[in-house]
Design a binder for these strands. Structure first.
Lengths: 253, 253
DNA sequence: CGCGGCTATCTTGCATACAAGATAGAAAAG
DNA sequence: CTTTTCTATCTTGTATGCAAGATAGCCGCG
């Protein structure tokens, strides 16, 4: 972060840092985000941190418990279903409205799927999680509609939080296959089929969740434990085995 | 909302006041929103106003020009097309995913359409504008998906801003008919047809816009005129004839 | 040993002070 | 009369200070 003209870097850096931390599953649901810690971490005052938190709150990424603190959201089972339903509606509608796949688009998706394959083979879990979610954002980008891209990015972030809470086991390979099938349908120009496959894919992933088990009955208590005062970084994951009642860390989106 | 303990009222009141002002077309695109004026208007400090502005900015409702001020967004023609495209995708997808219309839902829509008809007959333009947009939010509410409701509410707000900039003439009756047709298809259980009608309806409204004419080439200049220092309220409309290069004030959504 | 209450210390909520950029209007020069 | 320049004033950007609620740990009491 050391720059000659230091400012300008942290205009919306805080916001994006947290979101990208979630998109790559480095930040868990329920993580405490202390204004003070983030402020010292970014070398700014609490004011800017608060503004970033406000923005993230409207995006459904964090929430505030009055006078207690900011936390990364822990979507309930109902929230989870709503997120997947919203994604099915938007992503299927998006694919259904497509008329053609540009050459640049085809190449972008091919490159992406290649990356997925590579991450799958090399076992790079964090990168795989990121890529699995990013696929859907890439598709939104093909539409050229920035509004939908923003919406789907935030929904993807929430999806990843959901899978960290509820995903009992991950079928990354199966999910990758789903992505490939969607791409093939798109390539053949059958966007109706691509939309159907997209819905099936999301259904599949949602079915892989265990939405019956309450994710973390001691959530409130864990919140107060999740950031021991001596820990400096509130953004990095804590590999404390006591908190390992979290489910798998790989998201199949 | 009237509470004996006066506070608590202004937690997110500022945000909602501005949004509802837009939804009923009382606030024009490009309106300056001075932090100081809003602060004194609501009897709070600038801090809270700023937080509300930050939230509204992420919702795509206002934007800030550095060191110059906050303004209600003036969507460009490209923005306008993106908004309508997003709405087509989401609303059609939403209808297509519906399986049944509950009795409560049917009654709610019937009541709404009755209100539209009444406002149309009585010539209550402001109320009509509000209702025309609210119809689509009501449909989203039927899905029970709060995420989609929030998204569509913000898109509707932007739609109303767009129509204030680009709508050359309004066909409120035609638009009301479109709503009725969508409702009829829903009532008959043909949600695929309802989705198609929804797309047609949005196309129709978009076609009614004049997206070729630059909405307001003197936008920057007008911004500086839009709030003469002597005017106390920055939220109420200014019926200054000089700024009447705005198009029609009724939105057909 | 168990339990209740107190206090020290954390957290956010909110207002305020000051800095810096942008603007408009007056004043001055052509 | 026009143009330019300067200054007074307005705007947001940011940090800081203080208040109030929530929490945890200690201490004392039963």
């Amino acid at each position: 972060m050391q720059d000659s003209r230091a400012t300008e870097i942290t205009q919306r850096t805080i916001e994006e840092t947290i979101v990208s931390g979630i998109l790559s599953a480095r930040i868990r649901p329920g993580t405490r985000l202390s204004e003070n810690q983030l402020a010292t971490l970014f070398g700014v005052s609490r004011t800017r941190v608060r503004e970033a938190m406000m923005r993230l709150e409207t995006r459904g990424i964090v929430h505030v418990s009055p006078r207690r603190g900011w936390f990364v959201v822990e979507p309930s089972a109902e929230d989870a279903m709503a997120v997947y339903e919203a994604r099915r509606i938007i992503e299927a509608g998006l694919l259904r409205s497509m008329r053609s796949l540009t050459d640049a688009g085809r190449k972008a998706l091919e490159a992406h799927l290649h990356e997925e394959k590579h991450a799958l083979a090399s076992g790079d879990r964090q990168r795989l999680t990121y890529l699995m979610g990013d696929f859907h954002i890439r598709i939104a980008e093909l539409s050229g509609n920035g509004i939908l891209v923003d919406i789907l990015r935030d929904l993807t972030a929430r999806t990843i939080l959901i899978s960290m809470l509820y995903q009992s086991d991950f079928h990354a390979a199966q999910s990758h296959d789903g992505h490939c099938r969607i791409f093939e349908a798109m390539q053949s120009g059958d966007f109706t089929r691509a939309a159907e496959l997209s819905v099936e894919h999301l259904d599949e992933v949602e079915m892989g969740l265990d939405l019956t088990t309450r994710p973390d009955p001691l959530s409130e208590l864990r919140n107060s434990l999740s950031l021991p005062p001596k820990t400096a970084s509130s953004v990095s994951p804590q590999p404390d085995p006591k908190k390992r009642n979290f489910k798998g860390a790989i998201n199949t989106c």
